[in-house]
Design a protein around this nucleic acid. Sequence first.
DNA 1: CGACCATTTGATATGGATCAAGCGATGTGG
DNA 2: CCACATCGCTTGATCCATATCAAATGGTCG
Lengths: 229, 229
Amino acid sequence: MLTQTISRPAPFQHPAAGFRHASPAGREPAADSPDLVGALMPFARNSEIYGENEPADYLYKVVSGTVRTYKVLVDGRRQIGGFHLPGDMFGFESGEEHTFSAEAITDCKILVIKRSSVIALAARDNDIARQMWALTARELQRVQDHVMLLIKNARERVVGFLLEMADRGAGGSAVELPMSRQDIADYLGLTIETVSRTLTQLERAAAIELPTSRRIVLRNRPALSRLNA
Amino acid sequence: MLTQTISRPAPFQHPAAGFRHASPAGREPAADSPDLVGALMPFARNSEIYGENEPADYLYKVVSGTVRTYKVLVDGRRQIGGFHLPGDMFGFESGEEHTFSAEAITDCKILVIKRSSVIALAARDNDIARQMWALTARELQRVQDHVMLLIKNARERVVGFLLEMADRGAGGSAVELPMSRQDIADYLGLTIETVSRTLTQLERAAAIELPTSRRIVLRNRPALSRLNA
DNA sequence: CGACCATTTGATATGGATCAAGCGATGTGG
DNA sequence: CCACATCGCTTGATCCATATCAAATGGTCG
């Protein structure tokens, strides 16, 4: 394991690597709204939104599409820290640099907000400061839930992931997955093979249906919750 | 795994279960200091500081001793979310209830701070609000690091843990562990046997010394960092 | 000294990784 | 419009790291 070579065919390389967003020039957030305003920017599927170790000058809010944040280990493995759906904010950092990278999983529209202006706002408007505290606390909760997922067995992880996606999406018991099996595997700390096998097992157990590989119907939510142990 | 019974002999039960802290009556934080003041309370080894699902009315700062925060899964496994050393704050929550339990690993002195007064302070003093944001962001960073630990193999996890403890403690390359092997195992998502075996392997590899089971000398920090991959 | 508890060590089992091949959908060029 | 290449996903066979079960050792406290 220690002497492992970089084996995965770089699934996190993006074809449109040249595409980098410029500073959202000129547009400053309006101070009159508790909802922070920034520049709305499009990102193509698989394009990089920011990279690890880049200065964390912006905060981001997903307007449409799905985003993954991730880290690549020295041995080439990739760990996905989270999936961000419309309405979610990401890019929170304690320091001055991003500790994760972010990529668009699908074509996205992202609201890009200058961090310095948020901080400036927070210095004047107390509500902003507390809102940032609350948002960071929610993110903390999300990461803690992720820890609790990662200590479970493969079936529990996959079930936990499905229930999470179902809860976050508006599709009721049908989940349209924007991400690949590799993305799911890298989020759950499993291999694509294990994710795939687990899904087929769940299907055979009549807990879910797989009309297509990206569409999953939760056929028996209570049973899944029980499996979630 | 799913039909697993509660096997561990409840290592997280505390003999002094009757001991619960009362409200730190009367003492309100002084508004004139950026360091929040509360009541200093003693907690005996293995006593509960707060329980999961209890109202999160207080924030806590370790003055002396070591604290573990943890969750118990339905199947009886325990996951330790973090160890808190002198100077560390814990008990941050996004909601109104604690999502983890907290126990004293050793006899402790804990500064107990009323959350409502922090929030009241934050409403007036902007600096407090931003300080809370910063503290929560640091906690977020810590949990994210924990995620990155949990996806590694046993040796990397143990080495990561040792390096973390060495960095946090003031003992240079000697680490005095306040916690048991079971605590370490539950933090790293391993079994005590695997933790123990890994430590002996590291000792045989001349990377560490184990004068006693609770005292560990890092004999070759660069080599350990390399193992940390 | 003896009981108890934490830790270490040994033997075996197993869940998920790895290696390898097959399959189905999507897109491309003829 | 079809043959074929490509890519993402599934399925199969085997291997290995860590869990599990079991016992021995060591340290601490009455």
